[in-house]
Amino acid sequence: MNRIKAVLEQKGIKQKWLAKELGKSYNMVNAYAQNRQQPRLEILNEIATILDVDVRELIEPTKK
């Protein structure tokens, strides 16, 4: 599971903007944000760079 949607909301950024910055379709970014599809690690790193966050902020921890 990823936290892309939560991070976008925290930063006040729209999925359409992220899609444009990534060069991906809105539908693809929406699938990532809704956890219907998980991005490859390269894409996750690119999203983190665009959002100026540590990539770990985009992933739900598996252990508490």
Rank of each mutant, 00 (worst) to 15 (best):
Q10Y: 05
R40P: 03
L18H: 03
E46A: 09
L22K: 02
Q15V: 08
P61F: 07
N27T: 15
K64Y: 13
N45V: 13
E60A: 11
A19R: 00
N35K: 06
L41R: 09
Y26F: 13
V7M: 05
Y32C: 04
A31K: 00
M1E: 07
L58R: 05
M28Y: 04
K64C: 09
V53R: 05
A6D: 14
N27K: 15
W17S: 11
D54F: 13
I43Y: 02
A33E: 01
G12N: 12
N45M: 14
G23P: 06
M28C: 11
I47C: 00
L22R: 00
V29H: 03
V55C: 09
E21Q: 15
S25D: 13
G23D: 09
R3G: 05
E57G: 11
L51M: 11
A31I: 00
I50R: 02
I4C: 03
L22G: 01
K16L: 10
M28P: 00
K11R: 13
Y26Q: 05
M1K: 08
K14H: 12
L8Y: 05
R40N: 08
S25Y: 05
L58E: 06
N30W: 02
E21M: 14
K64M: 12
T49G: 14
L41G: 07
K20V: 12
Y32V: 03
A48L: 05
N45K: 15
E42G: 09
Y26D: 03
V29I: 07
G12T: 12
L51P: 02
G12I: 11
G23F: 08
K16A: 12
E60R: 13
P61C: 05
K20R: 15
I4W: 00
K5L: 07
I50M: 06
K64I: 14
Q38C: 02
R56P: 04
N27I: 10
I50D: 06
N45C: 15
I59L: 15
N35F: 01
L44I: 00
I47S: 04
K5N: 06
Q15I: 08
E42L: 11
L22W: 04
D54S: 15
Q37N: 09
I59G: 04
K5Y: 04
E57W: 10
K24E: 10
P39H: 00
L58H: 04
K16G: 07
Q38G: 00
A48H: 08
T49V: 13
N27P: 10
Q37V: 04
K20S: 11
Q38E: 00
Q38L: 02
I47H: 03
M28S: 09
L58Q: 08
L44T: 02
K14A: 12
K14D: 12
Y32N: 01
I50G: 05
D52V: 14
M1P: 04
I50V: 13
L18W: 03
L44V: 01
M1A: 08
A19L: 07
A6R: 11
T62G: 11
E21F: 06
